[in-house]
């Protein structure tokens, strides 16, 4: 656990419960999950399929209302907000990156990135020039400038995911939520995407919660939370002092710890 987490947590999840009633018998996917994420901290959530990690991520992002428990981001209890305020909070404070279906196919890469800015209310919406500058800066930093006028169908999977990251960062959010962002990518492209996420978050002090089942991807995080059957069963704090700039982090100790847990 890092000292930053201990000081002022950005995310506080308390006793989260969630049951889905789609199937019979109803499926309880979260059973009293509690956790905190510090400012600027990079947390990965791991666990086998169906353990509830995506549901936890959705609840943290205000997408899935819990049956019981609270989620506070930057001191705001998300699920007490009405739709209008929750949408505004999500737009301005949270960025999402998903495994697929991340981009609107009828919009160009630049337009997809600009979406959170354009969706702002009239009072807080930046001008056209400011939007263009922000989009351009993000595209430059993610090496996307040549895709400016291209649609998602004309770009590769890695490029699409980089556009999605740029969109998640567009509104300068305090929290990035990523659900299997490399699930559809090869290892090399996946590494590139993860390196970008960790670099951009660390350099700008953003918190990140990442859901993955791949230990090599989770190894980018400061802390790994392990879930099983809707509860957190383990916490692994990673040491990145031995990491080499531009190369994947050392995943060996994490893999060994997970092996011990027999997940």
């Amino acid at each position: 656990m890092t000292d930053r987490t201990a000081s002022t947590p950005l995310v506080t999840v308390s006793d989260l419960h969630k049951t889905f009633h789609i199937s019979r018998p109803p499926r309880e996917v979260l059973r009293g999950v509690s956790l905190t994420v510090g400012r600027g901290e990079f947390v990965a959530v791991m666990g086998p399929s169906g353990c509830g990690k995506s549901t936890l991520l959705h609840a943290i992002g205000g997408l899935e209302p819990p049956d019981r428990g609270t989620v506070a981001v930057d001191g705001q209890d998300l699920h007490s907000l009405d739709d209008e305020r929750l949408s505004a909070f999500r737009r301005d404070r949270i960025g999402f990156v998903f495994q697929r279906f991340n981009l609107i196919s009828s919009l160009t890469a630049a337009e997809n990135i600009a979406l959170p800015l354009r969706l702002r209310g009239r009072a807080s919406r930046p001008g056209r020039t400011a939007v263009m500058e922000r989009v351009s800066a993000l595209m430059d930093s993610l090496s996307l400038h040549r895709l400016q006028g291209h649609g998602p169908e004309e770009t590769s999977g890695g490029e699409q995911q980089r556009v999605a990251i740029a969109r998640a960062l567009a509104a300068n959010p305090v929290l990035i939520l990523a659900d299997e962002p490399t699930g559809n990518l090869d290892w090399s492209t996946g590494h590139e995407v993860m390196w970008l996420i960790s670099k951009l978050c660390r350099s700008e002090g953003r918190s990140t919660v990442l859901v993955t089942h791949d230990a090599r991807i989770a190894a980018y995080a400061d802390r790994v939370l392990v879930m099983k059957d809707g509860t957190l069963v383990e916490e692994v704090v990673l040491d990145h002092r031995a990491d080499t700039e531009g190369r994947p982090p050392v995943a060996g100790p994490l893999i060994a710890r997970l092996a011990d847990l027999e997940l």
């Binding site: 997408l63 739709d83 209008e84 929750l86 949408s87 505004a88 999500r90 737009r91 301005d92 999402f96 279906f101 991340n102 981009l103 609107i104 979406l115 959170p116 969706l119 702002r120 969109r167 509104a171």
Partner: peptide, 10 residues
């Protein structure tokens, strides 16, 4: 996706 990017119901 629009809703995810912060568009409200309204």
């Amino acid at each position: 996706l629009l809703r995810l990017a912060g568009a409200s119901r309204r």
